[in-house]
């Protein structure tokens, strides 16, 4: 089993929660190790890991494990998802809807299109509903009123339709092509 020394940079990054002492509870924070598909190790506090429904049920099924493998998830989106969930834990402890909205908006604004698209399946797999809603709203805002070609490149999708199939779909929805933004 890999140890956290495999990826010193990421480990440092994920443990930076500690400078802000947890005032709401005095209990010692238990760490949980997540392992991405590209073998990066993430040490996160138990409270953060429990935000991931998939991780939570993994622990309920095998409580003695210390490392949760996430075979479908690569390191970059995972680190961003962890960053988001850490903040949400703070808002859970000290509810502040306005601040939370502001944080969520900034979280997605600074991400590239690809970052957003890459995080969606991770949030979906880990079943983090709040994050999914934030991501889907952000993606929707970015593709609203955009052309079919723009949205293909936004999602990195190849066009699998034949020319005839695509033409038929465009004819069927001709009303939906009025007033579309320039690419």
């Amino acid at each position: 089993m890999s140890s956290s020394t495999d990826s010193p940079t990421l480990t440092t990054e994920t443990t930076q929660l500690s400078p802000q002492p947890d005032t709401e509870t005095a209990k010692p924070t238990k760490k949980i190790t997540l392992k991405s598909s590209d073998n990066q190790i993430f040490e996160v506090e138990e409270s953060v890991a429990m935000e991931f429904a998939t991780v939570k049920s993994f622990f309920e099924d095998s409580p003695s494990t210390d490392t949760v493998p996430l075979p479908n998830v690569t390191a970059k989106p995972l680190s961003q998802v962890i960053e988001f969930c850490k903040e949400q834990i703070k808002f859970k402890a000290n509810p502040d809807e306005a601040q939370k909205k502001k944080y969520n908006a900034e979280f997605v604004t600074e991400k590239s299109d690809k970052d957003l698209v890459d995080m969606i399946p991770v949030a979906n797999y880990l079943e983090i509903k709040d994050l999914l809603d934030v991501l889907n709203q952000a993606v929707a805002d970015r593709i609203e009123n955009k052309s079919v070609e723009y949205v293909r490149s936004f999602f990195g999708i190849d066009n699998d339709f034949t020319a005839e199939e695509e033409a038929a779909l465009r004819r069927e929805h001709a009303w939906a092509y009025e007033g579309v933004d320039e690419d």
Partner: peptide, 17 residues
């Protein structure tokens, strides 16, 4: 994601893939 857009977007974007 589509459910966060509009009916017009959904009609058009059915041609994406």
């Amino acid at each position: 994601a589509l459910s966060f857009t509009t009916p017009q977007d959904v009609g058009r974007l059915s041609a994406v893939s």
